[in-house]
Design a protein around this nucleic acid. Structure first.
Lengths: 344, 344
DNA sequence: TTGTAGGCGTTATCAA
DNA sequence: TTGATAACGCCTACAA
């Protein structure tokens, strides 16, 4: 149980089943049976083994176990940015579900770079994970993952369907949510509504733009292209965008933002400029209710998305075959004030 | 390369080095050399192997690799709640650093339960991780981890030093930060300042209470125990606490909160009650600058903590011996308005 | 430069 | 009920 390092120092190596077997004076397979909780071991030997395990501080080497059994009891989650509140909620939900099944969760950020994203995904796959949950980077072609489900690694996509690949997916009803926002603003009396869309995160942003325009049409308002602007989610860019919008002949009296990062940036810009248009943002966010005025949002529930994705994945892991499943979660209008402001 | 499942269905099993070697008509070790990027392979064979790898869609089995080499190239991170913004930032930083070194990150929530926490930690350890970063649950006795560093798994604690165990640790200067908050409030003219402390998260909360009292003493103010209250971070509890504080003979004109969750809850309570005391909160948080008035905070940088912990861990993994290291990060007063309000 | 033969720690098979 | 033995897929001497 002790080994020499290359430097010649003695280190206490981890005990193996061998050590336990020797210590307990039983055979190797008896130890294995005890460790794996299998039946067919006499109480006496079982006790002896358990004592040896405690005395030696033995714990099973998962790698050897996995090599032998084929299952790592681990799933992987890849998102663009772990620290984003939306994704951290998603991860939290997945991890929570995974823990119920005694699965471990490997996480990785793919960043905003497609190449990096591919590298990370490949790295995860060499882990022989039981399954993978992926929020794909917009532009990344994930077609190279096509062979995975067949090779035994089920994959579930969240938030955005993968490009060039059929797979289980969990998304929200972006179009309907955006249209709901417009309807609410129209109800408050607005006739000129702008859509401030996030340029990165193309898929969801596009869907929400489509929903926005559908909402505008349904309300019988003119479809004015100049009222839809795309911005980076920085305050400067939003100030610029708002300035242009407000200098229009028929300026907007209300704003719709396509995700929470944009909403926050726009709120910052509004404060800087001292303007107070009505506002509804896609995505709920912490403290939305403590803003002045409180911010009305189209809430999607990242925790629910995570749970749905985990469930889908667990079913696949358990062997569910059949066609890809597509879970579409609803959104919820949370009325708080900013969306009920009448036109100035 | 194909196997029968127990159901008798043919599945495409993953190719192994064997398959690649056969396909490329070379020896097993040649494949190994190519995969490991080692020198000493002729260009012709290297090309042949690479073609075979591409055609077969081979990727190395990390478990076998790890079993053989002993390093999993994976570190673990255990926090109490992944979805908490503070921890998700921490994880983001660690993951970012880990990716630079081609390490993967396993994350787990330990929850608020000591038993669960121990279970999770043990689970991680059986993974033979290269290292572990832990935000220990307050009450959890992590003494059972004592043998780990010796056994080859370095551990770094963050946010709170471990109970019953010496180890590398990254913390912030909680006392000084809290005292800074008091000083700032005193500067604005306050003579009666309350401390609203989070009951859970005992260590940091206690340190910050100590700092608070030190600040009060240093300002020459009386040490009034009734001005220090402990609450759960729910709005109801905060309303209750504020009500009591404000019904004191000499009620506080300013508040200090010991962490961001409490700050947010207190802000909610303040809005409900329609009161507007001065306020400084420990921990910065998103949108603090967009509140009305903007919230002054004692900022600690979770990203920096994560990076510091990662560095400490990497050094240990690289073989640094010697005594435990203790990194104490500073805090930063971010003046925004709520802490500069004069007494009403 | 290439290939062959162990062995990493575990589990499954089989015989005792 | 038990224990020896052969894989799992890979890496590392060592030999050719």
């Amino acid at each position: 149980m002790t080994k020499k390092t290359s430097e010649g120092a003695d280190v206490t190596a981890r005990p193996t089943m061998h050590d336990v077997a020797a210590h307990a004076r039983v055979g190797l397979s008896t130890v294995s049976r005890v460790v794996s909780g299998k039946a067919g071991v006499s109480l006496a030997k079982r006790n002896a083994v358990e004592r040896a395990i405690a005395e030696l501080g033995y714990s099973r080497n998962d790698f050897a176990h996995t090599l032998r059994t084929g299952s790592a009891r681990t799933i992987g989650v890849v998102v663009t940015r772990i620290s984003d509140p939306f994704y951290s909620q998603l991860i939290g939900a997945i991890e929570s579900r995974a823990q119920e099944r005694d699965l471990l969760v490997l996480v990785a950020s793919s960043g905003d770079d497609a190449a990096e994203s591919e590298r990370v995904l490949k790295r995860m796959l060499s882990r022989r994970l039981d399954g993978l949950i992926v929020v794909a980077h917009e532009e990344s072609d994930v077609a190279f993952l096509a062979a995975e489900p067949a090779a035994g690694t089920p994959i579930v996509f969240v938030d955005r369907p993968p490009v060039g690949l059929h797979s289980d997916v969990v998304i929200v009803d972006n179009e309907r949510g955006a249209a709901d926002a417009v309807r609410q603003l129209v109800r408050a009396g607005h006739r000129s509504i702008a859509c401030i869309a996030h340029t990165v995160g193309r898929y969801t942003s596009e869907q929400r733009q489509i929903g926005f325009r559908a909402g505008v049409r349904q309300a019988g308002l003119p479809d004015r292209a100049e009222l839809i602007v795309e911005v980076e989610d920085e305050i400067d860019a939003c100030v610029e965008a708002l300035r242009e919008l407000f200098s229009l002949p028929d300026p907007p009296t209300a704003l719709f933002t396509t995700n929470s990062r944009t909403t926050k940036a726009v709120l910052g810009a509004m404060r800087l400029m001292g303007v107070h248009p009505a506002l509804i943002g896609f995505d709920d966010f912490e403290l939305a209710d403590l803003m002045t005025p409180p911010v009305t949002t189209i809430a999607q529930d990242p925790w629910a998305s995570g749970e749905a994705a985990a469930e889908l994945l667990f079913e696949r892991i358990a062997g569910r075959g059949g066609p890809e499943r597509r879970v579409v979660l609803g959104t919820r209008l949370i009325t708080r004030g900013s969306g009920e402001l009448p036109p100035a």
